[in-house]
Nucleic acid binder design. Sequence first.
DNA 1: TTTTGTGGTTGACGTGGATCAACGGAGCAT
DNA 2: ATGCTCCGTTGATCCACGTCAACCACAAAA
Lengths: 246, 246
Amino acid sequence: MKAAVPITIASLKVACAQCNLLELCLPFGMSENEIDRLDELVGARRKIKRQQHLYRAGDPFEAIYAIRAGSFKTDVLLEDGREQVTGFQMTGEMLGLDGISTETHSCNAIALEDSEVCVIAYDKLEELARVVDGLQHQFHKVMSREIVRDHGVMTLLGSMRAEERLAAFLLNMSQRFTARGFSAAEFHLRMTREEIGSYLGLKLETVSRAFSKFQDEGLIAVQQKHIRILDIAGLKKLIQHHPSRC
Amino acid sequence: MKAAVPITIASLKVACAQCNLLELCLPFGMSENEIDRLDELVGARRKIKRQQHLYRAGDPFEAIYAIRAGSFKTDVLLEDGREQVTGFQMTGEMLGLDGISTETHSCNAIALEDSEVCVIAYDKLEELARVVDGLQHQFHKVMSREIVRDHGVMTLLGSMRAEERLAAFLLNMSQRFTARGFSAAEFHLRMTREEIGSYLGLKLETVSRAFSKFQDEGLIAVQQKHIRILDIAGLKKLIQHHPSRC
DNA sequence: TTTTGTGGTTGACGTGGATCAACGGAGCAT
DNA sequence: ATGCTCCGTTGATCCACGTCAACCACAAAA
């Protein structure tokens, strides 16, 4: 909390009802009346510079965060120094849900670029969710969606080979960019090969080699962090076909 | 739903307040008054025989389930026939939370032994959570706990080697048996080597070999599905030390 | 009793991805 | 420009785990 940035009256005025992330964020599916009441909820905005922590594992849990601009990674550090990236989050997505269970954050949230989040005090959220019908349901959906997504990652880590994992990752990124109105075929990754590797359970060299292989095969065009998908169907085929079953 | 077993008036009478799983289940941390109201929630019990489905991926979501007796696995089937076990659930744990987000179950839940669950209609739960303070908070905690647990599995799948994974699995089982009043050192696994392997991202042969190795090293005694842990500290040391860093 | 089927163990061998190492390019400060 | 640092690529080698296969234990059926 020490890193909180002072907020002006003006910045407080722009809340959920005016936010262009409405369709992706917590308010999705709520009525106009209900959304107006959300303004009570978003107490502050907070800007986080690239590489800075939004929160750290062990921090007391007080709020969840909706990403208004930018992107984040979450990771956990094992006792022996190994790092595991547990997710990448984009605008409209929620951070901090892991903290509810123990009232302590269980992972680190780090900005991949200069970013801004809406701070949602958790006690206020519970209070308001009791009154505003749609809010409670929507919040449950957000949590459930996180569980489903994690199961997807478990499947990826547990039963896919390196190239399948990277193909699935690229398709997932493409789909999320699309949902935000960006191109499905061309985008800029904000994370390093090492972070992608950690997320996918691979070493950075393996990630790099898979990128090169996809490029050689004409599936994508890679230039550093800039990706252009040339053959979406080809990528999809990769994750559906188990090579040993062919 | 077609597999539902008719319930007698008598069976309905025994609800949360009298249930000995209180401390593990949804009511944990709620006041006596609050728990009494939960009885409205548990509409029915349902018995599931070994190997039968409680629900399947694609089934419409209507209720969540608290395990009253027995145990389950959840899994997803990939298009190409691969199966990935996403979790094992024991008494007092919840099933079905994944269904909230899309109003459709996203995985299969299968009984590992003859089991019984409490059926908690989801719409009633939302309704009651609005009135009973502790229930809403407790339900959020249950969902959050699932997210944290999934992150733990992702860490395991993404950054541990085979023996570390199995050691972590055994310690986790031991800890959960302990929480239920059973021995921490001696227990009966209800799942096959193949299911353990699927959960841990390993082949059944690798699981079997790791069991044998642990036995040779005096860490455990294995006899089929019956496990006796002889050296808990030794197992813990396995998951804290990264071999390549020694 | 034998038969059949399912689950578990163990050995021999192959391979996908980790590891180790060298190098190249981009961004940034001086 | 020059040097520095971080990031990414690529090659050579290694090994943990997968694959393939044989065999065994136990349980249920004949």
